[in-house]
Amino acid sequence: MRGSVVGTAVTLAAGALLTAAMTTATASPPATATTPPAPAGARQPVLVDCLWHRTVRPGDFILACGDGNSRLTGLHWSQWGPHGATAVGVNMVNDCKPYCAAGSFHAYPVTVRLDVAKPWKKHPGVQHYTRMSLTYQKDRPEGFQQVMTYPLWD
């Protein structure tokens, strides 16, 4: 009995540490050195993350904020403007087998498309992207379509 309690405690602690580490990664400042200056009078839309931070051309982005089991990494942006943004990168997805804390992460190359820029409710003077589409280039997670579209936080 005691062995199973200790094993459960270790598993829960490992899951908490993984979640804390992935959440902390989102809080780090975004890399914006590659962002070209906006034309005079134009405003760059932003990408809002689950901690309500706004970023432009982030290098990574957490999709599954509650548990960190899906995140975009190695993002390289070729376009960022009022009509949309495009990047290539990798979607790291936990297979959660046999359960998420013991699962394995798998890398899936994707093309990321952001669009539908609208005023952000939290800061109406700021335009933010409200939709993200991921196009899987080859393999994709079990149960996913080749193109997955998600609403973004407002």
Rank of each mutant, 00 (worst) to 15 (best):
F105L: 14
T130A: 11
Y129L: 04
G143Q: 03
N69Y: 02
T24K: 10
M92P: 08
V112D: 15
Y99A: 14
H53W: 06
G143A: 02
V110R: 05
V48A: 09
A33L: 15
T130D: 15
D154M: 04
M92E: 12
L75H: 13
R140A: 02
H53M: 06
D154W: 13
R43V: 15
F105C: 10
L152V: 08
D49W: 01
S133W: 05
V93E: 11
Y150E: 09
T55P: 13
G59E: 15
R43W: 10
G125Y: 09
G74C: 11
V48F: 00
A27S: 13
T111Q: 10
F144Y: 02
T32R: 04
C65Y: 12
G41T: 07
G15T: 14
P124E: 04
A21K: 10
A38L: 12
M92G: 11
K97C: 09
A117F: 06
L47G: 11
N69L: 10
D49H: 02
A27V: 04
M132A: 04
V6F: 03
D115F: 04
A31K: 03
W77N: 02
V5T: 11
N94C: 05
A16M: 06
P109Q: 08
Y129Q: 02
P98G: 14
K97R: 08
F105W: 11
Y99H: 11
D115N: 12
V110C: 13
G125I: 06
G74L: 12
Q146V: 00
P98C: 12
H106S: 05
A101V: 14
S70Q: 15
S28A: 12
R71E: 02
L51I: 15
V112E: 15
P36V: 12
H83C: 14
N94L: 00
G66M: 03
G3P: 03
L63M: 14
M132K: 00
Y129E: 01
L152M: 06
H123R: 08
V93K: 02
M22K: 05
G89D: 04
G59C: 15
H106V: 07
P151H: 04
G143H: 05
E142Q: 07
K121C: 06
T19E: 07
Q127T: 14
F144S: 02
P30Q: 07
I62E: 13
R140Y: 00
A14D: 06
V147K: 05
A14Q: 11
T111P: 08
G103Q: 09
L134I: 10
C50R: 09
P39F: 09
V116H: 12
K122M: 01
A40L: 08
V46G: 14
P30W: 10
Q127W: 09
L51K: 10
A27Q: 14
S28D: 12
H76I: 08
D139F: 01
R2I: 09
N91I: 03
R140K: 06
P119K: 10
R71Y: 11
N69H: 05
H128S: 05
T23I: 06
N69G: 14
V10A: 00
V112A: 15
F61C: 08
G41D: 03
V147F: 03
P37S: 03
A13F: 09
C65H: 13
V56L: 05
